[in-house]
Amino acid sequence: MKAKKGIFLFGNYTLIIIVGLLFALPFLYTLYTSFVTMQDVNKIVGISHWTFSNYKTFFTNDAYNVPKWLLNTVIMTGIVIVGNLIINPMAAFALAKLDFAGKKLIYWIVVATMMVPYHMILIPVYVNVAHLGWLNSFAGLTVPFLYQCLYIFMLRQFFISVPNEFIEAARLDGLTKVGAFWRIVYPLAKSPLITMSILAFSGTWNSYLIPSTLTSDPAKYVLVVGLNSVKDMFFENTPLIMAGVVLTTIPILVFFFIFQKQYIEGVSSSGVKG
C-alpha cells in the first residue's frame, strides 16, 4: 500500500523521470547509433569516433534514394490533404446547414462508413487500382483517399455550431448559398480545418499498409515503405538502418513541433467527442 501511495504523491519527480527515460531511450539510442560505425554498435564511444557516412549513403545511392522518397511522400500527402480540405467541408456543410431530400441517407452513409475498418475493402481496392493501371502511381495512392468520413462528421459538428445569421447576412449581401459557404463559413472553420489537416497529415505520412500494397517499384516508394525495404536489405548494418530511421522520422517530428499545440488539441478533442 505504501509503495502504491508513492506513485500518486504529487510533485514526485522520480517516477516521471524513470518513465520519461524509458520512452526517450529508443530515440536516443537511434540517434547515437546512427553516428557510429558497425564495430561500435552497442558500445559507448567518444565523439571523435562518430561519422556521417551512414547518412551519406542515403543521398548518394540511386537504389535507396531518400530525397526521392521524401518527395514522393510530400506529393502523396499534399494531394490527400488538399482533397480533404475541399471535399470534406463541402459535404459537411451540406449535411449541417442545407435542408434537402436525401440528406438523411448521406448522413447515414457517413456514419456507417466511419465504422468499417479499411482492411474490409483493401483487396477490391487493390484490384480496382490495378485494373485502372494505377499501381505505382500517385493516382492510386491518393484518389481513393481524397475524402474521409470521420472528418466529414467532425466538420459537420462544427458547422452546426455556426449561427445561421452569418449565412443569412451573407445572402442579404447578395451571395448565393455557394458563395456564403466559400466566402463566409469556410474561413470561419479555420481551426477545425487545421485540426483535420494535422490528423490527415500524420495518418497519410505514416501509412504503410496502403502504399506498400499499391507500390512495388522502389522509385515510387514513400519514406515509410522505403525505410522498411532498407531495413530488410541491410539488416546487419544497424548504424545505416538507424540513420534511415532518423532521416525518415525527422520530417514528421519537425511538423509535430511546429503544430504541437493544435496537434494535441486535435487528438484530445477526438477523444472528448468520441
Binding site: 471535399i87 442545407l98 474490409m120 477490391p124
Partner: peptide, 30 residues
C-alpha cells in the same frame, strides 16, 4: 443554383462519387 436541394447535392457530389467507387463498390465486392 441557390436551392438547398441543388446546392446540397452539388456539395455532397464529390464525396458521393468517390464513396461509391472507392467504398461501396469495393465493400460489395468483398
Amino acid at each position: 443554383v441557390d436551392s438547398d436541394f441543388a446546392v446540397g447535392w452539388l456539395f455532397a457530389l464529390p464525396f458521393l462519387v468517390l464513396w461509391v467507387w472507392w467504398f461501396l463498390y469495393p465493400f460489395l465486392q468483398s
